[in-house]
Simulated scan of single mutants.
Amino acid sequence: MAYTPELSMYPACGNSIEEVVKDMQMISQLTNKIRLYGADCDQSALVLEAIKRTKIDMEVWLGNYVMPGEDEAYARQRDAIQAAIKKYGTKHIGGITVGNEYMLNYLTSQGLSSPDINTAAGDVGAATLIRYIDDTRTNIEAMKLDKTIPIGNSDAGSFFNNLVLAKIDYGLSNVHPWFANTTIEAAPQWTWDFFDEQNVTPATAINPNIEMYIAETGWPSGSKDVANESNGFASASVADLQTFLDLFVCKSNDDGVKYFYFEMFDEEWKDLQFGGVEGHWGLFDKHRKMKNLKLPTCLLKS
Rank of each mutant, 00 (worst) to 15 (best):
N118I: 10
A120C: 04
I117N: 09
A120M: 11
I149D: 00
I149K: 01
R137T: 05
Y132D: 03
I130Y: 12
I130A: 13
T128N: 08
D135L: 07
K144D: 13
D134N: 15
G125T: 09
T119M: 02
A120I: 14
I140H: 04
I133S: 02
T119W: 02
D116C: 04
K144G: 07
D116N: 12
D146A: 07
K144T: 10
R131C: 09
N153P: 00
D116P: 06
P150D: 02
Y132C: 08
D134Q: 14
M143W: 06
I117Q: 08
K144Y: 05
N118A: 10
T136Q: 03
I130C: 11
I140Q: 03
A121I: 00
A127M: 08
I133V: 14
V124A: 14
M143A: 09
L145V: 11
D146M: 06
A142L: 07
A142T: 12
D123R: 07
K144N: 15
N139A: 13
T148Q: 12
Y132W: 13
I151A: 03
L129R: 03
T128Y: 01
A142E: 15
G152K: 02
T119A: 04
L145D: 10
I133M: 03
G125D: 10
E141I: 04
I117C: 11
I140P: 10
D146E: 14
G125I: 10
A127E: 15
V124E: 15
N139Y: 08
M143Y: 06
V124C: 09
D116M: 04
D123A: 13
E141V: 07
D116G: 02
T138C: 00
I130H: 09
E141S: 07
D134A: 07
M143E: 14
A121E: 14
R131H: 14
G152Q: 03
R137A: 01
D135H: 09
